[in-house]
Design a protein around this nucleic acid. Sequence first.
DNA 1: GCAGGCATTGTTATCGATAACATTTCCCAT
DNA 2: ATGGGAAATGTTATCGATAACAATGCCTGC
Lengths: 330, 330
Amino acid sequence: METKGSRSPAMTDVARLAGVSHQTVSRVLNDHPNVKEQTRLRVRAAIAELNYRPNRAARALVTGRSQLIGVVARNSMLYGPASMLTEFEQAAADAGFAVSVGSVRELDRDSISAVVDRHLDQRVAGLVVIAQVASATEALAEIPADVPVVFIDGDPAAGRSLVTVDQVAGARAAVRHLLEAGHETVWHVSGPTEWFDSAGRIHGWRQTLLEAGREVPPLLSADWSAAEGYRAGQMLARMPEVTAIFAANDHLALGVLRALHERGRRVPHDVSVVGFDDVPEAAYFISAADHGAAVVRRCRPGRPDAVAGSAARGTRGSGHGDRSGTIGGT
Amino acid sequence: METKGSRSPAMTDVARLAGVSHQTVSRVLNDHPNVKEQTRLRVRAAIAELNYRPNRAARALVTGRSQLIGVVARNSMLYGPASMLTEFEQAAADAGFAVSVGSVRELDRDSISAVVDRHLDQRVAGLVVIAQVASATEALAEIPADVPVVFIDGDPAAGRSLVTVDQVAGARAAVRHLLEAGHETVWHVSGPTEWFDSAGRIHGWRQTLLEAGREVPPLLSADWSAAEGYRAGQMLARMPEVTAIFAANDHLALGVLRALHERGRRVPHDVSVVGFDDVPEAAYFISAADHGAAVVRRCRPGRPDAVAGSAARGTRGSGHGDRSGTIGGT
DNA sequence: GCAGGCATTGTTATCGATAACATTTCCCAT
DNA sequence: ATGGGAAATGTTATCGATAACAATGCCTGC
C-alpha cells in the first residue's frame, strides 16, 4: 500500500488518535446510545483531524447488506418514468441510501434478469422495479425472499408491494368528460397493449362506453411516441364520424393533433382530443383552431384514488397517469 | 447466521465442493491465465450447483475500488441530460459497471459536495459529472487524485476530461441559416446564462451577427422550459420588427410558438423560429400558419465538429445541442 | 538422471467495518 | 463498606474476496 500511495485512514487510525477502541469509533459514527459525550467529542475531533471517510464496502461485507437500492427500469425517455426515477432518487438519498440504476432496452425476461443479477451481486438493500409488463414479474422469481421489492406500475392483480395509480379510473374520467361534452362516442389511441398502464386505460375506456350504452369503436394501439400518435391520427383524421379522441399520453396526443391539422380538422371545433400524462410542455401545444380563441385548455376532473400508497403518490410528482387533460377540449 | 437463515455460499464453499483452493475459484471467476481447462470446468460445475453469487462488497474492500461509477447530475427532466444519462448507463453496464446516480436539486457547491461524498464513501471507480455551471467545478476539489472524473457539459475552458459539443458552432449555424433566409437580424431566447451551454450559444449568436455586420438585439434570457419560452415569446410577439428567433432549446421554442400564435403572428409567414435540441416531439409541433402548407419542417445544416470525444458523441445519441432545426423555418 | 524454468495451484495475510461477547467503571441502595 | 445493576468501553471473531508469496508438478535440454 505504501508503495503506491498512502492508505486512507481507517477506523483503527481514528481510534488510536482518540485513545479509544475501534468499536467505540463505530459506536460514535452510528449514533449508538451509551457513549459518553466527552468520548464522543474526542472521537469526532480525531475523525475531523484525519479526514476519515467510512468505507461502505466494509460495512456491507459484515452486515450482508449494502446501502444501495437497485432500480430496474426500461431505457426510456418517457416523461412519467423519468420523473418518477428522479423523485425516487431524492427520497432515497434523504433516507441515506444511494440508488443504483440498471436499465434494460426491452422489458424481456433475460434483460431484466441480467440487471437484477448485477444488483444482487451488490447485495442491494432493496429493489424497485419500474415495470409495466408481465415479463418483469416472471424475471423476478430468483430474488431472495429477504430482499424487499417494490413494483412501480406493475400488475395490479399480482398481489405484490405496488405503487401505481388507478389507470382504469383515470381513463373513465377522461371518457366520461368527453361524453358529457356531447360526443356520441370516444375513440382511443392506446400505448403498447402489453403494458399494464395501457391495459388499464383501454379497460376504463371500453367499460365507460359500454355502461353509457355507446358504441365501442375499434382500438388504435401504438407505442408512447408522438410519431405513433401521428400515424393513428392520420387514420382518424380521415373519418368525419370521429369527434372525440382519448390519447393514452400527451405525446401521442401531440402526434394526433398534427395529423388532424394536416387534414384540416379543427380542434376543438371539429374534434376534441384528451391526453393523459401531465407533461409540462403539453400546456403549450397549439392546435389549429379559430384564431383568437383560447386554444389549449386543461380540463381537470376529480382525482381518482390511487390503488396503494398515497404517500408514494407524492413521490410521483404530478406525473404519470394520475390526471387526464384536454388538449383543445370543449 | 444459522439462526436467521442459511448463509449464501461463498467462494470457500465452491472450493470445497470442487476440491481446489478458494484462490483457484477466484482465478476461474476472473479469467486468470494458467488455469487448466479441466480445473476450470470442475469449478464452474460447483458454482452452478451451489448457485454461487459473488459479493461485490468483499471485492471492493480488498481492491479499494468498487464496480460502481458515480454520476452527479441535476434533478432535471430536461431531454438532453436524461437521454445522456440513459445512454451512459447502458455503456457502463456493457463494461461491467453499475451506475449510482446522485442528483442535486440545485447546482450549488454544497449540494454537489454532498453527492460526491456519498459516491466516495462507496469507493466508486470513477465519477461522471453532468454539470453545466461553474460551481460544480469548485465543489470537486476534494476528489482524490486517483479517482477518474469526466465532465459532461462542463466548462470548455477548464482543461479537464470533458465530453461536450460545440455550442458556439451550433449556434452560429442556426443564426447563419436565418440570415441567409433573408432576415435582417436574429433575436435569441437563451437558457440560464450561468450554464456553459447557454453561454456558448449566446456567444455564437452574438459573434455571427457581429461578423455579418447586423445589429445585435437585446438578449432575452430564460430557463429551459416551455413556460419561460412563452414568457419571452409574449414580448417578441408584440414587436413587428422581430422576424427571426433562435431559441436555445425546443421546449423554449414551443413556448415561443404559442405566444406568437396568441398574437396572430404566423410562423413561418411572419416569423421564423429555430430551436436547438432534437427532442423527438419537436417534429410534431404545430405552428399556426396557412392551411394546407407543410407547416413544420426540419432544416439540417452540416454537423459541427465536437470539441472532444466523437465516440462519446455516439453515447449522446442524437441529443443535446448538436443540431439546430427550424420549427416553421423558411 | 538432473537441473532449470515455467505452468499450475495452494497458503497466509489483508482489507475495514460490525457482531458478539467480555470486562471495567460508576452509581445507588442497604 | 459491600453488593448489584447498569452504563460504558474493550477484545475477539467474522464477513468474502483478492494480493502476495510459497509450493508443487511438468516439461525440456544437457
